[in-house]
Simulated scan of single mutants.
Amino acid sequence: MATGHTDPQRRERILTATLDHIAEEGVASVSHRKIAARAGVPLGSMTYHFKGIDELLHEAFTRFAEHVAALFERRLNAAESAEEAREAVTDLIHELSDGPQHDLIVTHELYTLAARHPEYRELTRKWMIRSRQVLERHFDAETARQLDALIEGLALHRALDTAPHDRQLTSEAVKRITRTA
Results as ranks from 00 to 15, higher is better:
residue 156 L to R: 01
residue 71 L to C: 09
residue 77 N to P: 08
residue 80 E to H: 14
residue 117 H to W: 07
residue 151 I to Y: 02
residue 147 L to S: 04
residue 66 E to W: 12
residue 26 G to C: 01
residue 134 V to C: 07
residue 74 R to E: 15
residue 134 V to H: 03
residue 94 H to I: 14
residue 32 H to S: 12
residue 121 R to W: 12
residue 38 R to V: 00
residue 133 Q to M: 15
residue 69 A to E: 14
residue 125 R to W: 11
residue 26 G to F: 01
residue 168 Q to M: 09
residue 113 L to G: 10
residue 96 L to V: 12
residue 35 I to G: 01
residue 93 I to D: 07
residue 128 M to D: 12
residue 72 F to V: 04
residue 116 R to F: 10
residue 21 H to N: 02
residue 66 E to P: 06
residue 139 F to M: 06
residue 162 T to D: 08
residue 168 Q to F: 10
residue 80 E to Y: 10
residue 167 R to E: 06
residue 144 A to W: 01
residue 99 G to A: 13
residue 97 S to N: 11
residue 173 A to K: 08
residue 119 E to D: 12
residue 109 E to R: 09
residue 128 M to Y: 14
residue 80 E to L: 13
residue 149 A to Y: 04
residue 33 R to Q: 09
residue 9 Q to P: 00
residue 89 V to P: 07
residue 26 G to W: 03
residue 176 R to H: 04
residue 98 D to N: 14
residue 32 H to Q: 08
residue 20 D to K: 06
residue 51 K to I: 06
residue 3 T to L: 08
residue 49 H to I: 01
residue 91 D to Y: 09
residue 25 E to C: 05
residue 47 T to Q: 13
residue 39 A to L: 03
residue 152 E to H: 04
residue 102 H to W: 13
residue 121 R to T: 05
residue 51 K to H: 00
residue 131 S to C: 15
residue 117 H to A: 10
residue 148 D to M: 02
residue 135 L to N: 05
residue 65 A to L: 12
residue 155 A to M: 02
residue 141 A to R: 09
residue 73 E to Y: 10
residue 135 L to C: 04
residue 58 H to E: 09
residue 71 L to T: 15
residue 136 E to C: 14
residue 108 H to L: 11
residue 60 A to F: 07
residue 99 G to V: 10
residue 154 L to E: 11
residue 136 E to D: 05
residue 65 A to W: 03
residue 75 R to S: 15
residue 5 H to C: 00
residue 152 E to N: 09
residue 79 A to M: 07
residue 37 A to C: 00
residue 135 L to G: 05
residue 87 E to P: 00
residue 81 S to V: 13
residue 181 A to Q: 06
residue 47 T to S: 11
residue 162 T to W: 08
residue 70 A to V: 07
residue 86 R to A: 13
residue 160 L to F: 01
residue 143 T to I: 06
residue 23 A to N: 05
residue 49 H to F: 04
residue 91 D to E: 15
residue 169 L to M: 09
residue 46 M to Y: 03
residue 62 T to K: 11
residue 160 L to C: 02
residue 33 R to W: 02
residue 3 T to A: 09
residue 162 T to N: 00
residue 22 I to G: 01
residue 130 R to G: 10
residue 153 G to S: 15
residue 45 S to E: 07
residue 165 H to W: 00
residue 14 I to W: 01
residue 133 Q to D: 13
residue 122 E to M: 12
residue 23 A to M: 04
residue 155 A to G: 08
residue 113 L to H: 06
residue 99 G to K: 11
residue 143 T to W: 03
residue 109 E to I: 03
residue 168 Q to S: 10
residue 116 R to W: 13
residue 108 H to I: 04
